[in-house]
Structures are given as C-alpha cells and as structure tokens.
Design a binder for these strands. Sequence first.
DNA 1: GCCAACGTTGGC
DNA 2: GCCAACGTTGGC
Length: 181
Amino acid sequence: MAYWLFKSEPDCFSFADLCAAPGRTTGWDGVRNFQARNFLRDSIKLGDGVIYYHSNAEPPSIAGLAEVVEEAHPDPTAFDPSADHYDPKSKLETPTWFQVKIRAVRAIDPPLALPKLREVAALAGMELLRKGSRLSVQPVTLEEWHAVLELAGLAPTPHVKDLDSWPGSSTPRSSRKTRQV
DNA sequence: GCCAACGTTGGC
DNA sequence: GCCAACGTTGGC
C-alpha cells in the first residue's frame, strides 16, 4: 500500500470530471515523462491512494482523493495519431508509455490551496512543494497522506476505500464537462 | 503574461 | 558524452 499525488490541470480534466466519468474512473493517460512513467509502470499498485492535485488552477489545490483500480498497461493514446500525446516512436510490441486507472473516492471541498499546504510542517518535505518541482506523478509518504487527510477533516486511515463512507466531508460533485483528449 | 526550473533534442 | 538551444511546466 503506497500513496501518490497526481497532477491535472482542471481545465483539462478536473476532479469533478473524474467524479462524472463512467464508474468515477479514468485511465491516467498522456503522461510523457520518464520518471513519472516509471512510477506508473513499476511502482503504483492496486488499492494505492491518490491525492488529486489541480495545477495551473486558481488557486492550485488538492481537490480530492482517488484509488488505483487497475495497474499499469500500455497508454492507448500513445498509439493514436489523432491524440494530443501521440508518440510514433512507441510501438505496440514495445510500448514506451503506460497508464493506470483510478477511481474518485472523495472530493475535498473546499480544496486545500497550495499556500495553505506550504504552512503545514508535516508537509515541509513534500515533493509537490519543492521549488521547481514539475513531476506529474509523485510518491507521497504515509505521514504526508495522513496530514492531508487531517487538513481535509477526514479520519487518518491508510485504507483509501474507508473514506468512501466517512461522513466528515463533502461527496463528489457531478460535472457536465468532458475530457479533452 | 512572465519567467525560473526542468527535460529533451541534436550537433559535434 | 557534452552542452547549447529549445520546449514545457506551473507558480505567481
């Protein structure tokens, strides 16, 4: 059981979009950075917890929690010439790029804004808060996970599924937006 | 819109 | 293998 932070620009695919997706699930496609790819391909396991972060947002913030529901498999958008992140160098037999599937578990509303995260001592070492950090898929420690849950008013459980029925925070909102891929 | 930080590309 | 040029990310 491990914990991760996934970044997404809400204009592209927000946590509300994830909540509105079929099964509240999506394939985390389009990652084209090798370090992030390695986490997706090698380290992220079924049931792992995911902190859903909105980058390029006003303010940048943590907007929800998700869980991994399918481990690494080739990213289909890499083979699709019409996709934004098409990569002609990635072959079906030897794929370069991978995705996992995640499911929305809980919205965090109000979201945890970046300036507030910077004030939290327990998060001081977080990769997200490092100057110049751009990694879109990054590991999160158990301590950081618990600190985020506490800030969100949720129980300090290591089992992300347990948050589904926790009464302390809002339930995911729906959205009519669709994904731009 | 600006720009710092970082990753990738390609000439040599 | 080096490194300059370029493209991208993402906070501000």
